[in-house]
Structure formats: structure tokens, C-alpha cells
Design a protein around this nucleic acid. Structure first.
Lengths: 211, 211, 211, 211
DNA sequence: AATGAATGAGTGTTCATTCAT
DNA sequence: TATGAATGAACACTCATTCAT
């Protein structure tokens, strides 16, 4: 959490904020190689030289942005999964948040695209390994909840690993498809997504007549 | 006397093959900008200049590869969905093929990564629009089958558009995750994937005998 | 604090000047294709990259130089032919200026060589057409003066178009021959050149006293 | 003259002839650097490799073409100026031939453009010096005739060197202008050209009323 | 903190030339 | 004599990075 604090201090600089916004936008769509510092400086409305006043190198900025989004994802997931709701409620809430986030902003798309560029292009260093590890934290949180939920009968049976891989694959796919499909994209309902892990609530109600 | 035409054709095919293989591998992981022609030529085991004997430009090669994988995906989907199986069987078979393909080769990963790079980086031209259109053909095939299947009661109820978007998002996510997650990746069973559209057969059969 | 705008402007002007001088010299003699940007940068005493800070491309620089000399030629011709001298005086003065210019600097040679390279190599665009049109302006000025002079009896009779084509052909030929002939080149007197359009004054005066 | 014989032998090869024709056309307009061997082979309708069967290198072909046109110009000039006509008649005939040649074919334009490219671009070697020397032969022929004609009173008085430089400058200028000016070009009459060296015959007849 | 001119290394692309057949 | 695939060096152009101010 000192890391986050530090970021917020950094953010206090309006210039840094401009660079971050421009960098996120350009790096996530075009990737590291296809984005130039002059592009970023131009979009941020500042000079090239100033960018180097804040970031040691292009790759440095890129890495910092990846770190930032990974931290942010981790943090917001933590908050939800450390709450005292039932596993099913957590999963429903998480799914709803994800769908809402995809609907409202580019943050999710940027997160996944950035990760793709990062993992596939940037050569792995110690730092890179640490960041990658952290990027799996949300999967771990959900996995624990799935196992717990299965024990309670709230979550569908099945291999938890396979289930969360598919669940997050769907989330990643949706995030990226939103950007790629243009007006052909329709956002599934949160229930459709959470249906990957939970029994469909609608179907349950359909079964209720018996009770 | 000159080489006969046949000889030249054979030479051309062999070299073209090498370039295609190398290009697919490098473009799909690193993208257009981060892949140099020298990388490709090196991996293909030929000279840089020769690459330009076969492809007018780096972007030209990139586009041709994208076209190639899109055509291939379209074609293999067509074959399956034009068969005379029931909707549920088609979906099960398609899901199985997808999972097998992800398991066995890099083709699926390459397809989706290539499309991401293509859509996000290459500026849209008439050709680009045509290619994108064709890339939606598999979705349309599945959509028709879903609707048909819903009428027969073989496919889960729900908005077909939302369902196929989620279904293909999951496929895309799995394909990419396989590359990104490394040894943390576990491949879900075909039934788990087809479960997005169909009622899970195992649960039904598993639940019945006991009770 | 950053350099003030004035400082940057001064830097830009100085560098631009160097590029222009080097470019004129090299392009005019060797042409577009045989002149490399490295040649130009080297002669200008700057780096290759910097050249691209000022000109988008080699052809762009070339075109700008052509435009520059065409404008300059047009302008200096205008000044003379809009003066209030008699046609014969204008033609004498123009011929003298031309001969002096060929004698003193490389400007005339550069002008004609540049135009040759431009017309024969650069593919015709809207801009190219406009530049070519402007390059005919001096011919038009002289033509008007020739016609006027013929009416006054100051200029030799004959088809004005043929006469100015021959007159300018001679000027172009002299400009280029100066560079090509080396020490075999001797510059004709202005009267010899203007003799193409005017009756030779010397002969008249030389012939009269005796008879 | 053995040289010419040799060329004719060479010409006997239809392939050589194709290369020569293509080379003359491309080199004269685009110059050495901007013309590729593949261009030439393409225009000649043969393969790249075959071109190298006939000419050691691109520059070799270029030099041979220059030599060829210089020889040809020298030879045809010799024939005329070694005839037993009067100086004025020789000059009139030469001027007429020049104007006709400009009117009818591209040979004159090709000759002068080729020479410009050759002198200004190709680095001077022993061979180059010899070729350049030969290219001045026509000037020498005309110069001798001018001096002779001045002694006979057939040619205008004046510095013979200045006069022939201007005369050939005009010829060169016309040849090149024909290509450059497009439809604005009008060919002066032979008398206008020969008027640079001879008194205008028309004007003489205008003076005749007295006799 | 801020600017943008300047450099140099890297990459895309062309093309003269060679070579196996 | 004839072909065109293949190479490598040269050149156009871009861009991360530095620097004087």
C-alpha cells in the first residue's frame, strides 16, 4: 500500500497525470513499439523533453503504467473479496462490477491490452516476474471463493482451476472484443457471466414451482 | 538454359512457406511494429532482401497473413456448421475442436493475437473492412445455430447476441491466456466451454442415477 | 526556463539555410536520385536526422528548392519587365543580367539543372503543375516585350514564340554549358545574346562611319 | 571507325539492340542513378540476368551508350563539314539538320541529357576524359568553318569561340526544352538558328530593293 | 519545470550483382 | 543464351534520448 500512496503523490502533478493518461491510451492500443514518446508528449500536450523529466525512458513509463493498472486491479478485487458476503454474492458482485466497468470506461480494455503487450513483448526481468505474479492475484481470490462456494453448494461443481481460467478468459475476451468488434459488440448481462460459476438464478426460479 | 517454370515455382513455394511460418509466429506475439523484417528473415533462414521479393512491404506481409488466418478460420467453421448434425451436436463439436486446437497448436492463439494487432494498429482501408467482415462469419454461423437450437430446446434460452459474444470472448480469452499465463494455464474441458450455450449434460446424467 | 521563441527561430533559420545551400548544390548537379540525404547533411555539416526535422522527405526538400528558385526567377524577371524602359532596353538589360549572373554565380546553372531534374524525374502532381506553370512566367514577360518591341520596330521581325523559345534555349544552354564544358567555356557578350531578338547595335554603328 | 564497325557487329544481336534502346530512353530521362537494371530489362522485355550477359555493369552500359551517341554525333558532323560546300552552306545545312532532328526524333534530346548526366554524375576517369574530348569535336568543326566563313565575309564578325558556344548552347537548349516544355514548345526555323552565325538571308533580300 | 533542436542507432526498402540451372 | 531467385550493401526515414537554455 505504500506503493499506492506514492502513486497518488505522483499523481498530484498535473503533468504526470497528463502523461499517464496519454500513455495508457496509446500503449494499450498501439503497444510499446508502435507508440513514440513524441506521440505521448503530443497527446499530453507537453514537450518531449518534459516527458523525460518525469520518466527515465519509454520502457520505464510503460512498466510503471502496467504496474499501476495491476495494482489497481488487485486492490479493487481485494476490497470485494475480503468483504463478508457469501461466495455467490461476491461472485455476482464481481461479475456485475466487471460488466459495468467494461460498459462505462476503457479501463478494463486498457488493462488487458496492456498486459498482452507487456507479457508478450517486454523481456522478462525480476520486476516483470513480480508484476506478473501480482496480476494473478485476482484469479487467486476468485479461486478461493469458488472452492469455498462449492463446499457450500453455491458454486457449480467442477475443477476450480478450469473454471476460473474460463471465467477470466471470458472477461479478458469481452474487454478486448469491446474495442475490436465496434458496433457489433453487445455486452452480456452480469448473470450470463456469473453463470459460468454459479447456477443461473433465473433457471432456479423456473424450478421453484415445486417449492 | 533457364530453370523450368516448375523449378521456380517450387522454389517460390518453399521460400514463401518459410516466410509465412516465421511471420505468423513473430507478428502474432510481438505485433507489427515490434517485429522487424530482419527478425522474420532470420527466423525464416533467408536474407532480408529476399523477403521483399515475395512481399511488397512489411505491412503487406502482415495483411496477407491476417487474410490467410481469417480465411482459414472461416472455412473450417463453414465445414462444421454446414454439416447435418443437430445444433447441440454442432456446438459440442465446435467447442471440442476449439479446445483441441488450443491444446495442440499455436494456431488459435496466433489467430486472435494477429486480429488484435490488425484491428488496433492497421489503419482501416477498404481491404481492412472486408477482412474484418469476414472475421465475423464464424460468429454468424454460431448465432444461427444458437437460434435454431433454442427453438428446438437444445440451447439455453437467452439473448443470442449476448450469448455468442460471451462464447467467442471466452474462446479468444482462452487462446490468448494460453500464451500469457504460462504454466498457470489449464485448459477447460470442452463441456465447460459448450456449457455457455448448452445445458451441461454431465450434471444431468451424474445427478440422475444416484437419486 | 526554456529558450525563448526568438532563439529557436534563429536556430531554425540558420540550419535551414545550411540545408538549402547544400541541397541546391548537390541536387542541381547530381539530381534527386543520385544525391543522398547523407551527402546533403554532410555538406551542410549537420546530422542526417536533423534534416528530417526540417523537411518531411528528400523529395519534399527537392520540391521546396525547386519552388524557391522558380519563385526567385519569376520575381526578379517581374521587376525588370514591369519597369518603364523601352522594350529594347528591357531586353538588353535582361540579357546583360543573365550573362552577368552566369558569370558570377552558380544560380542560373542550378536553376536550369534543377528544372531538368524536376520535370523529368518528379511525377506530376497538382503542385508540380503549378510550379511548372510559374516557370514559364519569364518567357511570357519576354514574349510580351518582344511583340511590343516589334510594333515599335525595336525588335527583329519574326514569330515571337519561335524567337523566345530560341532565346531561352540559348540561356539555358549557356547556363548548363558553363558547368559542363569546364575551361572550354567562354561566355558570350550580352550583345551577342540580345542579338537573337535585337539588331546588333555595334554592327550598325561600326558600319556607318566608314560609308 | 573500327569502333563504329564493332558497334554494328554488336548491334546485330537483337537482344543488345533492345537493351540499347531501353537504356537510351531510361538513362536519358531519369539519369544513371534513378534507372535500375530491372527497369531496363523490363522495358527491353528480357531478364535481369541476360542484361549482365551483355554488359558488365550498369555503369558500363551507361558509358557505352554515351560513347555510342558521342561517336554518332561526331561522325555525322564530320560528314557534313568535310563536304565541299561553302562555310555558309555548311552552317545552313547543319542548322537545318539539327532542327529536323529535334523535330523528328528523340535522338538529340537523348544526346544532350545523356551528356549532362554523364559529365555531372559519373566520376571522371581516363575513358571519361577521352569521351568528353570527342564530344567537343562538332564544336571544333563548326569553329573552323566559322573562322573560314568570316574571312570570306559569309559569317558574321565576332569572337568565334563566343559564337559557337552560343550556337551550341542554343542547340542544346532547344533539344532539352522540347522535352521539358511539352506543348508550349515551338521549334524555331533553321534560319533563326543559323542566324546566330550568318546574316539573316531574309533581311538581305529586304535590303535588295536598292540593287 | 520546460522547451525543442540535435544526434545516432536502428529499421524498412531498393537494387546492382551473382549464381544454379 | 537465358531465367529469375537470392544476397548484401546502401540509402531513406524514424525515434529514443540528450542537452543548452
Amino acid at each position: 500500500m505504500p506503493r499506492v500512496k506514492q502513486q497518488f503523490d505522483a499523481m498530484r502533478s498535473a503533468t504526470r497525470e497528463k502523461i499517464i493518461t496519454a500513455g495508457l491510451q496509446l500503449f494499450s492500443t498501439k503497444g510499446l513499439a508502435a507508440t513514440s514518446i513524441q506521440d505521448i508528449a503530443g497527446l499530453a500536450g507537453i514537450s518531449v523533453g518534459l516527458t523525460y523529466h518525469y520518466y527515465k525512458s519509454k520502457e520505464d513509463l510503460f512498466t510503471e503504467l502496467v504496474e499501476m493498472v495491476v495494482d489497481s486491479a488487485d486492490e479493487s478485487t481485494q476490497v470485494l473479496f475480503n468483504s463478508d458476503q457469501s461466495p455467490a454474492e461476491k461472485i455476482k458482485m464481481f461479475s456485475k462490477n466487471v460488466i459495468d466497468s467494461i460498459a462505462e470506461s476503457a479501463a478494463m480494455s486498457q488493462y488487458y491490452l496492456l498486459m498482452i503487450h507487456y507479457v508478450l513483448v517486454v523481456d522478462p526481468s525480476k520486476k516483470a516476474v513480480k508484476i506478473r505474479e501480482k496480476s494473478f492475484a485476482p484469479l487467486e481470490s476468485v479461486k478461493r471463493t469458488v472452492i469455498e462456494g462449492q463446499e457450500l453448494g453455491e458454486v457449480k461443481p467442477g475443477d476450480p482451476d478450469e473454471m476460473i481460467v474460463l471465467y477470466f478468459a471470458a472477461i479478458q475476451g469481452l474487454s478486448i472484443s469491446k474495442l475490436m468488434m465496434g458496433n457489433r459488440f453487445v455486452l452480456p448481462s452480469p448473470d450470463l457471466l456469473s453463470g459460468l460459476l454459479l447456477d443461473n438464478p433465473k433457471r432456479k426460479s423456473a424450478a421453484l414451482p415445486i417449492n
